[in-house]
Simulated scan of single mutants.
Amino acid sequence: MLLFLYGYGDNGEPNPLEDQGVSRWAVTKIWSSSKGGADDKMARQNTSRSLEEAQGTPSGFNMTRELIRLNPGIFSALPREFLPNYKNPCWFEKVNETDVGSQLRDRLVDNGTGHFRLRCLPYFYIIGMPKCGTTDLYYRITEHPDVVGGPKEPHWWAKNRRHLLGDGSPSTIWCNNRWRKQQWDTPNNEPPILVADLLRAVQPHAKFILTLRNPTERLYSEYLFFSGGFRDKKSVTDFHERATLAIDIFQSCLKNNTVRSCTYDPNLPPTRTVRLRLGLYEVYLRDWLSVFPRDQILVQRLEDHSKDPHTTMTRVFKFLDLGPITNQSDKDAIFMSNAKRSQKKRYDSIGQMLPKTRRMLNKFYRPYNQRLAELLNDTDYLWLEKSSV
């Protein structure tokens, strides 16, 4: 059974879950007794009702109802039920005959009443964090014979509501800036809606993989990776100055706001290429665990993956319920290939961060690492060992 990570859209390209002139309830019309616009409306109402019942709250505020109001294009695109025998949530969608080109026709199903395309939501998401090995992890997963891959980072849920593919976007867990434009007027300046809430309403049974690393090392790796328009001016001294400024800005925010508010606040003065808040893993993960059960989120460390990719990938495939790998070339690609996007050349040209910078960042992150270790009941997330990544 193939695990699809994407569906094809018009012209054979990946297509978003937004109305583009295609009948969104084609499956209902063809495979059931539904007829006409009245049944289209009923189908939408039934979908909304089932989603609302899933997330009603004793206080009377219904998260899913609010999400449907804010994102009608997403929820109106979903069928009342998905196809059986697929790990992904999949359905057939009727394509207007005028949109059927020669390239797209070969990818469609014709049952005599029209042309249909297979649409699928991702079965799993790699939700973070940036510079924690998400690219290496994603491409190892797509080497599995049961997985059909695609471009890694559409950032569809967090940023770009365009094409929806198999999702390895490390922005999914932390970036909630989109809601600032729609609904973020709260007394404590904390986000009332998370990307996790929207995903829960759309895919309550999705699986999520979160890979983390020592936040001090993550920050420096990100500084080396992103150009920010001044790559030739980067130095260990420049990084120290930017990290110091980022800490000062965050600590100033904490004088009048909660940790959660400062972690998510998109209006804090930016510090280019030094995104300090992305290392506050406990804040983001605790929020996601308030939305999804623990057994739907696999958390692992880049340090462990770098030392023993065979063990970590075996754990990932078990989590995703994927079958055994028998072909030797597949085994080599998954368990033995070199990591994608290694930073070794950049470390060699600029050097390791200054000892005083490391001490400063370790001190800043220490209480957040302690809370993360308590949340996961695992002292490895204190990152007391010397990093070898």
Rank of each mutant, 00 (worst) to 15 (best):
L2V: 13
L3S: 10
F4C: 03
Y6T: 12
G7D: 07
Y8T: 14
G9F: 00
N11W: 09
G12P: 02
G12M: 07
P16C: 06
L17S: 10
E18D: 11
A26W: 04
V27W: 05
I30P: 01
I30R: 08
S32G: 04
K35Y: 11
G37I: 14
D39L: 06
D40A: 06
T47K: 11
S48W: 11
R49S: 13
T57M: 10
N62H: 12
N62V: 11
M63D: 06
M63I: 14
I68C: 05
R69W: 03
P72I: 03
A77D: 11
L78C: 08
R80D: 15
E81Q: 15
E81P: 02
F82C: 08
N85H: 06
Y86W: 02
K87W: 08
K94A: 15
N96P: 04
T98R: 12
D99V: 09
R105T: 04
L108K: 01
G112W: 11
G114Q: 05
F116M: 12
L121Y: 00
P122S: 04
P122C: 06
Y123H: 08
F124E: 03
F124R: 05
G128V: 03
G128S: 01
Y139L: 03
Y139Q: 10
P145W: 00
P145F: 01
D146N: 10
D146W: 00
G150K: 12
H155G: 03
K159G: 03
K159W: 02
L165C: 13
G166Q: 04
T172E: 01
I173Y: 05
D185A: 04
N188C: 03
N188S: 07
L194W: 05
D197V: 08
D197S: 12
L199W: 00
R200C: 03
H205R: 11
A206K: 02
F208Y: 09
T211K: 01
T211A: 09
R218S: 01
R218I: 01
L224Y: 10
D232L: 13
F239Q: 07
H240K: 10
E241P: 05
R242F: 04
A243D: 09
L245N: 07
S252P: 00
S252Q: 10
N256K: 15
N257H: 14
R260L: 05
S261E: 02
C262A: 12
Y264R: 09
P266E: 13
L268N: 10
P270A: 11
R272E: 14
R275C: 00
L276K: 04
G279W: 00
G279T: 02
Y284Q: 05
Y284L: 09
R286D: 14
S290A: 13
F292N: 05
P293L: 08
Q296L: 01
L298C: 01
K307S: 13
D308S: 06
H310V: 11
T311E: 13
M313S: 07
M313F: 02
R315A: 13
R315Y: 04
V316Q: 11
F317P: 07
K318L: 08
L322I: 04
G323E: 12
N327R: 14
N327I: 10
Q328G: 00
A333P: 00
F335Y: 15
M336S: 14
A339C: 15
K340S: 12
R341F: 06
S349L: 09
I350D: 14
I350Q: 07
M353I: 07
R358Q: 13
R359S: 11
L361D: 06
K363S: 13
Y365G: 05
R371E: 15
L372Q: 12
L375W: 00
N377D: 15
N377I: 02
Y381L: 10
W383E: 14
E385Q: 13
